[in-house]
Simulated scan of single mutants.
Amino acid sequence: MVGTDIGIDLGTASILVYVKGKGVVLKEPSVVAIDRSTRKILKYGEDARLMIGRTPGNVVATRPLRQGVISDYDTTEKMIKHFIQKAVGKRCFRKPRVAVCVPSAITEVERRAVEEATSEAGAREVRIIAEPIAAAIGAGIDISKPCGNMIVDIGGGTADIAVISLGESVVSTSIKIAGDNFDEAIVRYMRKKHNLLIGERTAENIKVKIGTCYPLAEPETMEVRGRNLVTGLPRTVTVSSEETEEALREATLNIVEAVHTVLEKTPPELAADVADRGIVLTGGGALLRGLEELIEDRTGIHTMTADDPMTCVAIGTGQYVELLGEKF
């Protein structure tokens, strides 16, 4: 392999790597396990995620990215390097060209930190692309036309909402409410309503299995184990999908409010296009049940989820590299 073009979706919850000609070759949680005494990284990705909440005192499983931006520079650099090597192999003779996806509201300082971390991790050239643009390309939308397309990309740390026309965001916003906030809302609800302390992995499990933000035709239930805050002993309670709707109400309505704000600022011709073409949801957070119905109910605009919302941004970032071709 002489040289490779790579697209990276550098997410708060997951990292996805797209390699030109191969598609998405790697999808791992953005988690690293570190030995506190030596600062040595012990595990990356899924291996490290399994350690969350289960490590001894000297080992900590942590996420070096918070709400779409780098919170631990050195660890992020090592993590990107590890995943690039895992994706392209160590026998790559020439450093790859890399396009990295970031939230649309990122500051210049945060943007530079991503560029530098990716360069230090072994990239020959680095291009930064805004998340909604990558999500739209990955969802199969032709963004080059003079036509309004609305994208709502809900990741782990941020929700990016944008109306795109002629390959650029015309109106956009980025709010720091997304998948992680859904998990935190469930943890808070369980503590308040059931006096039960649960970890973030359990909260994520509840969200995936019975989580909803719109009433289901048939309510669902599941058993949840945690620590009773009164007795301090392990306890099991039964939780219903209706309770998750209550727990997630505030966070999901904040996302709907952001969609509403972007629509209010959208020029009338583009707003008419959006009303005609609908709203497209991408990102892992878009998999939360009832989100399509909730947005459609509050805006009156047909809302649909992309075919594979989890990989849209990574595919779009990779295709952006291919579109640039020789111009990169």
Rank of each mutant, 00 (worst) to 15 (best):
T266Q: 07
A258Y: 00
T282S: 15
D276C: 09
E257N: 14
V256A: 07
E264N: 14
A271Y: 15
I279V: 11
L253N: 15
P268Y: 13
G278W: 14
G278P: 02
A272G: 07
E264H: 10
E269Q: 14
I255C: 02
E269K: 06
E269N: 08
P268F: 06
D273Y: 09
T266L: 04
K265H: 08
V280Q: 13
I255Y: 10
P267I: 10
A275M: 12
H260V: 09
V259F: 00
I279G: 01
T261W: 00
I279Q: 01
D273Q: 10
R277V: 02
E257Y: 08
T282K: 09
V274G: 04
A271M: 08
H260T: 15
A272L: 12
L270Q: 00
V274C: 08
V280F: 09
A271I: 10
I279D: 03
I255N: 03
A272N: 12
V259N: 01
V274M: 04
V259Y: 02
A271N: 12
P267C: 06
T266V: 08
E269A: 11
E257D: 15
V262A: 04
A275F: 11
T266R: 00
H260R: 05
V262T: 05
T261L: 01
V256Y: 07
G278Q: 10
T261E: 05
V259W: 01
V280S: 09
G278S: 13
L270V: 09
L253D: 07
H260N: 12
T252A: 06
T266S: 04
G278M: 13
E257C: 07
D276Y: 14
V274Y: 04
L270C: 05
A275P: 05
K265P: 03
L281I: 11
A258S: 15
K265T: 07
A272T: 15
E264M: 14
A258R: 07
P268R: 15
L281E: 07
V262K: 00
D276E: 15
E264A: 15
E264R: 06
V256P: 00
P267S: 11
K265G: 05
T261S: 11
L253T: 08
H260Y: 02
D276V: 06
T266K: 02
V262N: 02
P267F: 13
N254C: 07
V280E: 09
E264Y: 01
G278Y: 14
A271E: 08
E269D: 13
E269L: 15
D276K: 15
R277E: 14
T252E: 02
L263I: 02
V262S: 04
N254E: 14
A271R: 11
A275Q: 13
N254M: 13
T282I: 13
I279H: 00
E257H: 11
A272I: 12
T252P: 04
A271D: 13
I279N: 01
I255S: 00
D276W: 11
I279K: 02
N254I: 01
T252C: 09
V274R: 00
T252V: 10
E269V: 12
L270W: 04
G278R: 14
V280C: 06
L263E: 03
L281A: 12
T266F: 00
A271Q: 11
L253R: 12
A258F: 04
A258V: 12
V280H: 04
P267K: 11
D273A: 10
